[in-house]
């Protein structure tokens, strides 16, 4: 009796879990970046593969529990293995897992190894994101296309006025390249244009995380890590911190504003005073 119940519980667990993951309510957030289609497809393929594995093993486990309960006086089979079955199952698993690894690496290569082609990179909007407990700062290089030198000793968090010098990023006032740098607390990006985002941190490790972009990258103090994305849909998206950074980690929010090229230029002009 209790064995039948257990078999049913095992099957039900599998069915409910598969249904939950198949339910449209629990999908990844709507994507707004050029690279996310490849990721989403790979996730879907992986989910189907593991869904099969999960369902089959639970079907088998439930079946064994249902079928092979002890009966009076009967002896179990004395089988201690079956090399053929073992090898076949192991080989199938190995092929499936390694195929997943290879297809997954193709997606990864597209994201991080074969960086965006040079032509579009030249066209890319260069932005710097500088994280600190518990805020994001963004810097645009201005008309000269160059970021001014920064010095941690010049950080001035009290002076948060947009475009200030040296401001929260400690832009060196003696460096002419820094004169026209634009510092903001919101990341604005023109739609359908590649963005080259250099991540830095002033204090501890943070993580630039935009669920809608399928983008996540640590910002590590002492390192300058550059990532690329192209936002494909105008709108406002939340930027979160995904690496535990201290007591108000859960409040470290900023916005990504994806704008039409004209709105973007206007926004940039407005902020560069």
């Amino acid at each position: 009796m209790s064995s039948r119940l257990l078999a049913i519980a095992i099957w039900l667990t599998a069915i409910i879990t598969v249904c939950l993951f198949a339910w449209p309510k629990w999908r990844l957030p709507a994507s707004v970046s050029a690279h996310s289609a490849a990721i989403d497809r790979q996730f879907k393929i992986t989910l189907i593969v593991i869904g099969f594995g999960f369902a089959l093993t639970h079907a088998a486990l439930g079946y064994a529990v249902w079928r092979y309960r002890a009966k009076n006086g009967e002896r179990a089979s004395n089988s201690s293995g079956n090399a053929r079955v073992e090898i076949i199952l192991a080989a199938i698993t190995a092929v499936v897992f390694i195929a997943l690894a290879i297809t997954g690496q193709r997606v990864w290569a597209g994201l991080r190894l074969n960086q965006a082609p040079p032509t579009s990179l030249a066209d890319a909007v260069r932005v710097e994101a500088v994280a600190q407990q518990f805020a994001w700062n963004f810097r645009y290089p201005g008309a000269d296309g160059k970021f001014g030198r920064t010095d941690p000793r010049l950080y001035n968090d009290a002076d948060n006025s947009i475009g200030s010098r040296p401001g929260p990023l400690g832009i060196d006032p003696t460096d002419p390249a820094g004169k026209d740098d634009v510092v903001t607390t919101t990341l604005a990006a023109p739609v359908n244009r590649p963005i080259s985002l250099a991540l830095r941190s002033k204090d501890v490790i943070h993580d630039f995380y935009v669920p809608a972009l399928r983008l996540k990258q640590d910002a590590v103090p002492g390192m300058r890590i550059t990532i690329h994305f192209t936002a494909t849909s105008e709108g406002r998206y939340e930027i979160a911190c995904a690496e535990l950074c201290g007591r108000f980690h859960h409040q470290m929010r900023a916005y990504l504003d994806v704008k039409s090229p004209r709105d973007y230029e206007e926004w940039l002009k407005k902020n560069s005073k």
């Binding site: 093993t57 064994a64 529990v65 309960r69 002890a70 009967e74 002896r75 079955v85 073992e86 190995a94």
Partner: peptide, 21 residues
């Protein structure tokens, strides 16, 4: 892969068993 092999073998151990619950 070795983790999956372990799973198969646990299922294999149950196959044809006389399970005491």
């Amino acid at each position: 892969v070795p983790s999956a092999i372990k799973t198969f073998n646990w299922l294999g151990t149950l196959w044809g068993a006389r399970i005491r619950f």
